[in-house]
């Protein structure tokens, strides 16, 4: 315990100066949803499976894909069900 006391007294803090030093996100971490819109076929699977209703897909004539980041619960279910794998999870959080 004495060792711990000294390392606490003279060592560096356990936290980071967050906005200036950032930890690199772990690979495979679910940060935010990304859609490669060029590959998307607008099938609507992601909209139907999303537990939080965060995705709205416009069908054939207008072909749109809208995603509300503030509704998203980053579960990754849409990525799993996407038939053409145009959806992916970016490990980065925020922008």
């Amino acid at each position: 315990m004495i060792k711990r006391v000294f390392s606490n007294l003279f060592g560096s803090p356990a936290t980071r100066l967050y906005p200036f030093t950032r930890r690199e996100p772990f690979a495979g971490s679910r940060g935010q949803l990304k859609n490669d819109i060029a590959k998307c076929i607008f099938c609507g699977q992601c909209q139907r499976r999303c537990p939080a209703d965060a995705i709205v897909v416009g069908k054939k004539p207008d072909k749109s894909w809208a995603f509300d980041r503030y509704r998203c619960i980053v579960c990754g279910y849409c990525v799993e069900v996407c038939p053409v794998k145009c959806l992916s999870m970016d490990p980065k959080h925020g922008d």
Binding site: F26, G28, S29, R30, I73, V74, C75, G76
Partner: peptide, 15 residues
């Protein structure tokens, strides 16, 4: 929590 994020992709809501 870091271990959970590395293995499952999220700190708490493993999903």
């Amino acid at each position: 929590l870091d271990l959970l994020e590395r293995t499952a992709g999220h700190r708490v809501m493993l999903g």
